[in-house]
Amino acid sequence: MKRYLKVYRYLLKINFAKLVIYRTNFVSSLVSSLVWGIFIIVQMLLLTSRSTQIFGWTKNELLLLTGVFSVGVGLFHIFLTPNFENIAALVNFGRLDAWLLKPIDSQFLTSFMYVNFGAVTRLVAAMAFTIYILVQIQFKLTWVSSGVFLLFFGAGLLLIYSVWMSVVTLLIWVPRLSNIVEFMFSIMGMARFPREMFQRYSQVVLYILFPLTFVIVSPTKVLLAKATLFDAIGLFLLTTLFFIGSRKFWQFAMKYYTSASS
């Protein structure tokens, strides 16, 4: 574990150096990331502007859900997105060979090699917005509530990572399916809405998206002191299952990696 933390520290340094080299790209990322973050928040502000309740959630509760989602997605885009975006090219051009030869876990390297510091604006804006909403709803900050929230939030992030990892592993067999990353972005966007929304309109959609409905909703419910046993068990059980599943699936997929083009 210590060795992996040390490796990650070096990876952060390398990525930071790259950021300094490609400055225009970095500024573009900062701006576009911020605009997208603001869009998500304004969208919810607009939808809740004339209603007191939607799907049984009050306006502030929905805004808090949006804030927590934006924080989660901000972190995801900084640490994970650039890596998932890269997997198709890694497999397609056979570059994964070089990574498999390194004395380090291939899933770790595939998941954490790149960092996109450009998405930091979105994270900062999302955190500021979430804190503002927490003040609005007069949230009482205690060690216990913060700790439980962080535990749920961490589990939510691990769950979304595992779902992504399971899906992008398919690229080992179909490396030309580069669209899958875009597809997953849309799927992930569903996590910013309450479970009740899917429940009301389509049971089929609900079943398909079931794991995602825990990622952000459960931690947000902790902040609102509304988390039920179902939210807790659902989140931790799904996280465990998906994490183990994604790990096994990656190891299985490695047996079929054909090292194309190299």
């Binding site: 939607i54 799907f55 849309s186």
Partner: peptide
Amino acid sequence: LWRVRVVIRFLITYFLWSS
């Protein structure tokens, strides 16, 4: 996959306004 993505984006908007 591209088409499924487009449909998902639409369904989100549709569900929201419907609610």
